[in-house]
Design a protein around this nucleic acid. Sequence first.
DNA 1: GTCTATATCATGATAGAC
DNA 2: GTCTATCATGATATAGAC
Lengths: 232, 232
Amino acid sequence: MTVSRSPEAKVAGATRERILNAAETLFVEQGFDATSLRQITASAGANLASVNYHFGSKEALVREVFDRRLRVINAERLAELDEAESEAGDRPLAPEKLIEAFLLPVLRMSKDRTRGGHAFIRLLGRAYTEPTETVRKLLAEEYVEVLERFKRALLRALPELPEKELVWRVHFALGAMSYAIAGADSVQLIASYEVRDTDNVDSILQRIVPFIVAGLSAPVSASTPRSERRAA
Amino acid sequence: MTVSRSPEAKVAGATRERILNAAETLFVEQGFDATSLRQITASAGANLASVNYHFGSKEALVREVFDRRLRVINAERLAELDEAESEAGDRPLAPEKLIEAFLLPVLRMSKDRTRGGHAFIRLLGRAYTEPTETVRKLLAEEYVEVLERFKRALLRALPELPEKELVWRVHFALGAMSYAIAGADSVQLIASYEVRDTDNVDSILQRIVPFIVAGLSAPVSASTPRSERRAA
DNA sequence: GTCTATATCATGATAGAC
DNA sequence: GTCTATCATGATATAGAC
């Protein structure tokens, strides 16, 4: 791919990226269906036809909006996990370390306004509950490796937890995380006063890690149905 | 309003309900934007114009789809809370009791297929992260009273927790709950084997309550930034 | 690669007969 | 209250000049 990089190719790449950036922002604000190709291209300073030229269809554009960021995030997640595991040697990792390894890349992207991606983070939380099959499938494919690795690490970190129980708790944890990140706005729903430290992603990490670790480490016995519960 | 209930009025009521039921189901499967009035009326066996006759607009229909169920759920939530509080007398409630009071009405509706509403529950989880302002606003209005009451009860149940911290944790908990209920499907994302006890809502309740209680009760000190952390 | 112009289609909403 | 017919709009996608 080092051959014949014409000046036009550079411009083309730039257009492609401007479209992706514009789409990302508009998708966050309005959702996928409510965002038209006209809006996207207008906002990107590109031509209406350019989306179909560069991506083939609106659906393919959506896929690429997710792919572009998730590739980075998930690679960094695995890297964080590798590092933490090699640090720990043979011992199982502390659950805190695991949660941090999973969340740090997201929060890093959320902070770094120069590389972009700040907006994307809010999309990510919504993607799980999307009705559109396209998005859910894409996400499943992109996450399968990462979640397997983290699941295995969690099983080692919490050896007393049955796997089935763990799977559910990871699911709950993903929900908590996605609300934490995507819906920071809606905290106002329950806050009677101003909360506005939304932008301070560090504070979110500090708050959610203990919440999730405690949830994952909760005693299993408590989940026994009330009727079957025995005195301790 | 007891005057002149003609036979037509009964039919009209039935049509109205059929439209609401059809819309509810289709919204779950496809989302609001992707669902057309034509689909809804066809599925309801009603005329295309009937939506605008009965509701005035598509947006108003969306509002009513939510209102109809949330009125019931939130009234039951308050009733559950009242009952638990009067049982406890002067003592603060156990956090478990609070979480159960909040979740039971939802799970009850999810189970009861005769009264309908099974589909709605999946909508509910998605509503928080909806980009559309209409839905988010509606939800905020409908929830403000319930969340205030539960917040006050939680402050009593967890007196050592600063209010600001509590607000965030409730937010996380809402995320965990909405994933638990709305996205039971996506558990398969991380499960290598079959999980399919989705329909058994009791088992979800048994699993999520300890998770949330543990998260809410987590020590606050742990959320101090690493740099500021002091030895215990 | 980019642009204009356009084909094709589906949408929400409404007017007006019954 | 229900129906048919239709309007106006905006959507995605493409053809073809530059």
